[in-house]
């Protein structure tokens, strides 16, 4: 990393000497910035970067706890209500997966299981681990691994919305007087849970991984 070689202004007094560790990306526009502490604002887009250093993880914790709490009723209440010819059948998220499996729809059962159970739980665990590990000296693994974990939650996180969309499509399509599919209470709880998990991930300050050595 030698910028000086091609530097036409060599010898001028304006040369800045900085530590590579002091460089952070803007969360909005990705521009590389020099970390100036609490008064950071991006040199390219002007957004306020990580202004809330004094309560850096609290916001993310608050969103995450909301998401985890909402995930409980999401699993206890019915997600889908099928009423056909007077008989009403309710199924929870897990119940729906089991039913699909028994009916032989293995690929769909796997997709719903991954999207509604695996991804949310994995995201909770990863975020809890990251939030704790930036405050306390746990997790001896490389910092790069933590960044990769965070990247993973960002990429797969939105896919947990699949079941909500599927329920919405089914309910919109099938609503006859004799056969009707309705969304259940769990749909609202689950949507809240996904929304707040996404917020928690966005609120997580990735530069904290770097600072915690």
């Amino acid at each position: 990393m030698d910028v000086e070689k091609e530097n036409p202004f060599r010898g001028r007094e304006t040369v800045i000497e900085i530590d590579e560790d002091k460089l952070i990306p803007c969360p909005v526009c990705d521009a590389v910035n020099i970390d100036k502490g609490k008064k950071n604002s991006c040199r390219r887009c002007g957004c306020a970067m990580y202004h809330h250093r004094s309560f850096s993880t609290e916001k993310s914790w608050a969103y995450l706890l909301t998401a985890i709490i909402a995930y409980i009723p999401a699993n206890l209440y019915p997600m889908l209500i099928t009423s056909a010819f007077g008989t009403k059948e309710e199924s929870t998220i897990l119940g729906g997966v089991v039913l699909l499996w028994e009916l032989g729809s293995y690929p769909v059962a796997v997709i719903i299981f991954l999207a509604s159970i695996m991804i949310p739980v994995m995201k909770f665990l990863i975020l809890i681990y990251l939030l704790i590990s930036v405050k306390y000296p746990i997790g001896k693994d490389k910092k790069a691994n933590k960044h990769k974990l965070y990247y993973l939650t960002e990429v797969v996180g939105p896919w947990s919305m699949i079941d909500i969309f599927v329920v919405a499509i089914l309910a919109a399509l099938i609503h006859l007087s004799s056969i009707e599919i309705l969304a259940g209470t769990a749909a609202t709880a689950f949507a809240i849970s996904v929304f707040f998990t996404l917020l928690a991930a966005h609120a997580f300050d990735e530069t904290l991984i770097k600072e915690n050595k």
């Binding site: 530097n7 036409p8 001028r12 900085i18 990705d30 910035n33």
Partner: peptide
């Protein structure tokens, strides 16, 4: 690391995945 000015930081990019 030496830079002529802050604008020279545009010659760098931080990886999204591994930082």
């Amino acid at each position: 690391m030496k830079l002529e000015n802050e604008d020279a930081l545009d010659n760098f990019i931080i990886c999204h995945k591994c930082y």
